[in-house]
Design a protein around this nucleic acid. Structure first.
Lengths: 237, 237
DNA sequence: CAAGCCGTAGTGGTCCGACCACATCTCTGG
DNA sequence: CCAGAGATGTGGTCGGACCACTACGGCTTG
């Protein structure tokens, strides 16, 4: 009698689409609490198991958030929430795709750095300098990695485009970065990296977008070139 | 006794990480078939329900693919597979974030178009021209939309960076594009769009990367400006 | 002998009902 | 008035049953 959906795909898939549609149509606002799993399952006419799978799917996509004992909530739908999954791409990529990833990062990072040079506030600049100093003050690779990430993240944030910053964040996921640094440090590339960071910093201080763009592009380009070299070496082996 | 994992997070979450790790470490190759859900659940010491949720999660991430009656397989892990989820970002974004999305797209699309101008093959150029002609030959908005998407997709593909192409694809998801076109056509912007496409095409034929970059940036920039105008109008209302 | 049909075993898909772990509110006792 | 103990409701996990579909093999048939 009530034939709302004409049977396409699995029930779970349908449930995912329906909830997504509800959010898209504004029926569910960011931060809002959803009915319980049991109620939702009843409403959509499916079992709780299937509903749970749908919820799990939307959870990993950063659309929903399940709090044990409390309920299911729509996330803020921030760029960061939705783009968190981007990290798995970097983690699971290998070979030629790593170069492609770096190519994309070079394009975005140089643009973001240029924008940051024009827009960065004194407070944001101070944070950038903090990470820069921290990197120079230690020899612990783990710590350097952390501040390297934070350094670029702070710059991306200062560019004023959260979406771009979130993508860059995913493009530089921790495990991805760690893989690069591991082989990187054996070639005594720390000094050169430090110089490149300093160059980027100078451009930000000078509020020179063109210089910032060039410095950032060169910085990522170095890693890119190194990665290409690694791939060629592997091929010969 | 055998305390392999020291209880962190939910069981399902752990299962997701474990399978992801297996793939990351090369224990599971692209295209390979996994054990059955029942066996996997036993191996990881969890129930089938939890295992199914983990599989569902990795499925929506484009890492695994479940074929009813056949088994579970690792995808090719292509950029397209992994970045399919990117579309939901575009679908669920609203307001200012749409502008940010277009800003990212402008940066990437202009770069991709420039690369395409340098690398495009005659065959690829022919496909681009096919969609260009198809757009000019019809008045059906639906069909124009399809060929508009295909036009840009073909160019991105010709740039030779599949990852970048996949991101651009997500950035121009169908529903996102449809929303723009709907209001766009009321302002008789078809002609201008046509001219912009022609300009891009000329640059490709001339194999002029700089011209291609400029044309693509201007093209996306137009949409960007229109979107900004829409937002301002909404604010006043 | 070869080609096609068909049955069967095995797989993912769905459902159910029970119980556990945790968060939150309420009610009690000081 | 407040702190703590309990009750309630929520998501998390489990086990088992059955359905829908695929793939494979043997069987029939030409």
């Amino acid at each position: 009698m009530e034939q709302t959906a004409p049977q396409k795909g699995t029930v779970t898939q349908r449930a995912i689409e329906q909830i997504k549609a509800m959010i898209g149509e504004g029926l569910l606002e960011p931060g809002q609490r959803l009915p319980t799993e049991r109620d939702l399952a009843t409403q959509l006419g499916i079992s709780r198991s299937s509903m749970r799978e749908a919820i799990r799917a939307l959870t990993v996509l950063g659309v929903l958030e399940a709090r044990h004992g409390s309920g299911i909530y729509v996330t803020q739908l921030d760029a960061g929430d939705l783009l968190e999954t981007f990290g798995v791409v970097a983690d699971l990529s290998r070979g030629p795709r790593l170069v492609e990833l770096l190519e994309v990062r070079r394009v975005l990072e140089s643009t973001a750095t240029a924008l940051a040079a024009a827009r960065i506030t004194p407070g944001q600049l101070a944070e950038v300098e903090l990470h820069l100093a921290a990197m120079a003050a230690t020899d612990d690779p783990e710590e350097i990695l952390s501040h390297d990430l934070a350094f670029h993240r702070a710059i991306a944030k200062a560019a004023g485009n959260d979406t771009m910053a979130a993508i860059l964040d995913g493009l530089s996921s921790r495990t991805f970065r760690a893989r690069v640094w591991r082989g990187y440090q054996e070639e005594g590339a720390f000094e050169r990296t430090g110089r490149e960071h300093a160059r980027i910093h100078r451009a930000l201080v000078a509020r020179d977008p063109e210089a910032a763009r060039a410095a950032a592009a060169a910085h990522v380009g170095e890693v890119e070139a190194w990665m290409r070299g690694q791939l060629d070496a592997e091929e010969l082996a």
